[in-house]
Amino acid sequence: MENPDTFYDGSKRIKSEIKKENQRLFMRRLLANKSLLIGGIILIIIGLIAILGPSFLSNTPYQIFAEERLSAPSREFIFGTDNMGRDLLSRVIFGARVSLFVGLMASGVTALVGLMVGLYASYYRFLDHILMRICDGLMAFPAILLALAIMAALGANALNVIVALSIVMIPTVARVIRSAALVVQEQTFIEAIKAQGAGSFRVIWVHIAPNVLSHLIIQATYVFAISIIIEASLSFMGVGIPAPDPSWGNIIYEGKIHITRAWWMTLFPGAFILSTVIALNLFGDGLRDFLDPYTIN
């Protein structure tokens, strides 16, 4: 009785019922995972605002209403206007596009390079020493300080923000992937695959990489969240996304000196940063539980 199929070998009807049952179980696990659900919903809403929002706007983020400078939220300007008389709602929504784009790109580049560095460091001992010492060096600096230095060297624009963020984040991801990959490599199937005559490239990319993918996805969501914060911080310090392009960070930066008179310039972009970062962290935590088979009860 070593064939589990004996239970399944009934008619096609039973098979489709089992499939349905599996789908039900999947949905139940998904719904039971509150943080994944809440985080995911908030992210979808913010994503939709960033993508679809601009088509509902009557004002562009650059249009200046000189007489309406620093006016409080009203029916005409729902989020109020900034110190130059630009529609804050429009700027925050376009800022969402910039911030999310930068965050997404940074986490994508970080995940890709981090995966590569982590995998090769775990596979080749001599590369391990070199790559991990470089990572140690990069991690010795506070993230913001390092990003600031890189931005100062490269100059302020969106592309350089992505580059700076990636350099800052790669070491963390690389280390997580390296340790996960080391665990995978200790398993017999890697030795078995080598015994089948597989080359190192196949072992690394076809057999180790898919087994560390869940770690990578989870790390990518955290990197996304931190990227948004660091990008906002850089813009706040004036080395991030240059004016007049809006980003959440530089809107807050411009609102800083008017905070006593125009709280809305700080509150609305701040609220967006906060909710996005919380949602990403919730989503990452939820994803970790969801992808880890040991948390199934």
Binding site: Q187, T188, F189, E191, A192, I193, K194, A195, Q196, G197, A198, G199, H207, P210, N211
Partner: peptide, 24 residues
């Protein structure tokens, strides 16, 4: 040597539980 492994000489490992890649 890689051409020999798996083609001319094969190996079966002790632990069947961890000798297969779980993702394929």
């Amino acid at each position: 040597m890689r051409n020999i492994r798996g083609r001319s000489i094969s190996m079966i490992f002790q632990d069947p539980m961890s000798s297969l890649n779980p993702v394929y």
